[in-house]
Amino acid sequence: MMKLLLAAAALSGLIVLNLSGCKSKQNAAPAAEPLPVKTVAVHAADEPRWIEMLGQAEGGAEVEVRAQVSGILKRLNYQEGDFVKAGDVLFEIEDAPFKARLDSARSTRKQYADELAQAERELKRTSTLYKTGAASRKDFDDAQSTRNQKKFQFEQAKADEKDAEISLGWTRVLAPASGYASRASLNPGSLIDASSSLLATITQHDDVRITFAPSDRDLGESKVTLESAVRVFTKNGKEIPAKLDYVAKSLDPSVGTRLMRAALSADHPVIPGEFVTVRLMVDVDKQAYRVPQKAVMQRPDGTYCVYVAADGKARLRTVTVGLWEGTDWIVRSGLKDGDLIITNQLLRLQEGSPIRLSANEAPTEKH
Rank of each mutant, 00 (worst) to 15 (best):
A8G: 06
S20G: 02
C22Y: 12
A32Y: 04
P34W: 04
L35D: 03
K38H: 12
K38W: 13
K38S: 13
A41G: 07
L54A: 11
L54C: 00
Q56D: 06
A67W: 01
Q68L: 07
L73H: 04
K74Q: 12
R75H: 08
G81Q: 08
G81N: 06
K85M: 06
K85T: 08
V89G: 01
L90G: 08
I93N: 01
L102A: 07
D103K: 00
A105G: 05
K110A: 15
Q111P: 04
Q111R: 13
L116G: 03
A117S: 08
A117F: 06
T132I: 00
G133C: 02
F140N: 15
E155P: 07
E161G: 11
E165Q: 14
E165N: 11
I166D: 15
L168Q: 10
G169P: 14
V173I: 04
L174M: 13
P176R: 01
G179V: 08
A181D: 00
R183L: 13
L186T: 02
S190A: 15
D206M: 02
R209G: 06
A213K: 14
R217I: 11
G220M: 09
E221S: 15
S222K: 03
A229F: 01
R231C: 01
N236D: 15
K238V: 07
Y246M: 12
P253T: 10
R258K: 13
L280H: 05
V282F: 04
V282T: 15
D283E: 08
D285F: 05
Y289G: 05
K294H: 12
R299F: 05
Y307P: 08
R315V: 10
R317C: 11
T318R: 13
G322K: 04
T327G: 12
D328P: 12
W329H: 08
I330R: 15
G334A: 05
L340F: 09
E351I: 00
G352N: 07
G352I: 07
S353P: 05
T364G: 11
E365I: 01
